[in-house]
């Protein structure tokens, strides 16, 4: 890749002669995922997509169209069957399992529809769990977890168990857990799928705040209101990705 190519992809890039170019956070080139079977299921057809730092992408599409498949690939939870995926310029499709795990721990934060909070641990412990695997020094863990919970406006719930929280609060804990390690990319698979419109609003406001702080987000949603908040949007239909904006 030459400097000229990067400039073409990134015209707004602050280009200074000789300075290292900033690679996009996500750069997909003909990324493909098919599941073996008879006939094989092509869950994601060859897809090209570039997400710059600070982009907020919504992914919409009918059920079974391949949205989660794409997000799992983006989150390095799954391996593509074809194509290339550069994460922060690093060819993630070629690196070994250890490196992928390390990238997951350090660069990516996940928010799931079902929250995935450990029910027997406190809110604070749930958030600190992410710092353990990301290799955050023990002395910093507490402070960072509290800061993350302050960011999602839950500093008054530190010692609560997730089971005693409302759905919106639980999802905000999950968001705090996702951002406590300062990831480059936040991935959310239907984060408001289990929430009513009020609590959905809380979580989406939070995403807006994180976006405003410069975090890169990719959010799967069924909800058009949710999709409307993102400045970029793609639709997947039957494994085929179409850029809306």
């Amino acid at each position: 890749m030459t400097t000229a190519d990067v400039a073409a992809v990134d015209p707004a890039g602050t280009e200074v002669l000789g300075a290292a170019p900033v690679p996009p956070v996500i750069d997909l080139r003909a990324l493909t995922r098919s599941f073996p079977g008879d006939p094989p299921v092509v869950a994601l057809r060859p897809t090209d997509l570039v997400l710059q730092e600070g982009d907020y992408l919504s992914i919409v599409g009918p059920s079974g169209s391949g949205k989660s498949t794409l997000l799992n690939l983006l989150g390095l939870l799954d391996r593509p069957t074809g194509g290339e995926y550069f994460l922060d310029g690093e060819p993630s499709h070629t690196v070994n399992e250890r490196r992928r795990t390390a990238l997951r721990a350090g660069r990516i934060g996940f928010v799931f529809q079902a929250f995935h909070l450990l029910p027997h641990r406190t809110v604070l412990e749930n958030v600190m769990l992410a710092t353990i695997y990301a290799g955050v020094p023990r002395a910093e863990r507490y402070g960072r977890a509290v800061a993350a919970l302050e960011r999602v406006h839950l500093e008054h719930r530190l010692t609560f168990r997730p089971t005693t929280l409302s759905g919106g609060e639980r999802q905000r804990v999950a968001v705090a857990r996702a951002v406590v390690t300062n990831p480059r990319l936040l991935l959310a698979d239907e984060p408001t799928g289990n929430l009513d419109s009020t609590t959905s609003g809380e979580v989406l406001d939070l995403f807006d705040e994180l976006h405003a702080d410069g975090l890169t987000l990719a959010v799967i949603t069924h909800d058009d209101d949710v999709a409307a908040r993102a400045q970029r949007s793609v639709r997947i239909t039957d494994g085929l990705l179409e850029v809306l904006r």
């Binding site: 399992e97 795990t101 997951r104 350090g106 079902a114 450990l118 769990l129 992410a130 695997y133 990301a134």
Partner: peptide, 16 residues
């Protein structure tokens, strides 16, 4: 299983 998946997503290795 769900907890294991979560830990893996958070960056836990198979060994861990």
């Amino acid at each position: 299983v769900g907890e294991i998946g979560l830990r893996r997503a958070l960056g836990a290795t198979r060994g861990q």
